[in-house]
Design a protein around this nucleic acid. Structure first.
Ligand SMILES: [Mn+2]
Ligand SMILES: [Mn+2]
Ligand SMILES: [Zn+2]
Ligand SMILES: [Zn+2]
Lengths: 136, 136
DNA sequence: ATATAAATGCGAATGATTTGCATTTGCGAA
DNA sequence: TTCGCAAATGCAAATCATTCGCATTTATAT
């Protein structure tokens, strides 16, 4: 529940945060700050990009969200839960497809043992050549 | 060898590219464009940030380099070979330590089967809590 | 209801990366 | 070896995602 997530993180429950979390939750894939902004604006709610960035940052710090960094420099966000996803992007045609599992899942225990660090988040971007581009 | 790497990628062998590749090669960890720029400049070679960015981009496209994206938005670069490294960074104190193996290594075959994509590169950033910060 | 800190909106600033263009350089063909 | 041309470079200016300062509003504990 969104309400609990916020309380749990010691954050106030506000209209903006609810909207942002709802949008991320209902998005089928990681979503950018700009896209979230457009959605909220189009629903004619007053809002502001700064607030969105601030919210996304704090939710990442609290490990409620994962920030996904694409090599083109843009970032997108998704819930940091079991349903989070990773993709591989073709460097030739930019098409991307879903990887069916998270490579970090099996790794966290190992990393805790190796480093003493508790893993709270991760960003993975895979690049490759898609079958079509490979034929050419 | 650097000469072969460039030829292999269909790129001209130039002074700048040699310098950039040498610097990346001899760096113990992924290095930023700005840092490369400073090193070349300090050796009193004429150079330019645009050229460095252009070079890094093209070398990533050709899969000679891996681009590592940190969640603070900065990028750094390392050779795309068996010696490449990944780190986990503490979100509280920003300290980072080396992970001893690449999580993607074992995964590429699986991904080829699942998606048909050939994996040519990857960027992984792990965030967590370091032992010290965890105590507090 | 009140007090206080946290959150928001707005505009301006920042800073890494990119782009346009004139000049130089590498390299294959003659 | 020389020539011609595309590729690479340097420089200055532009871009654009993200951040920051500050005045105002809002959430929550007492
Ligand atoms: Mn994952
Ligand atoms: Mn790796
Ligand atoms: Zn493709
Ligand atoms: Zn720490």
């Amino acid at each position: 529940m969104i309400e609990e997530m916020l309380k749990n993180a010691g954050l106030k429950k506000t209209k903006q945060r609810n909207l942002i979390l709802e949008i991320i939750k209902s998005s089928s894939k990681p979503i950018t700050a700009e896209k979230i902004f457009e959605i909220i604006k189009s629903e004619s709610n007053n809002t502001n990009l700064s607030t969105i960035y601030r919210t996304l940052n704090i939710l990442c710090e609290k490990s409620l969200l994962l920030k996904i960094l694409k090599s083109d420099g843009t970032a997108s966000y998704q819930l940091n839960d079991a349903s989070h996803k990773h993709y591989i992007t073709c460097c030739a045609c930019q098409n991307s497809v879903l990887i069916d599992s998270c490579p970090i899942k099996d790794l966290s225990d190992k990393i805790v043992n190796e480093t003493g660090y508790i893993v709270t988040g991760h960003s993975i971007e895979l690049t490759g050549i898609c079958p079509k581009c490979n034929k050419k």
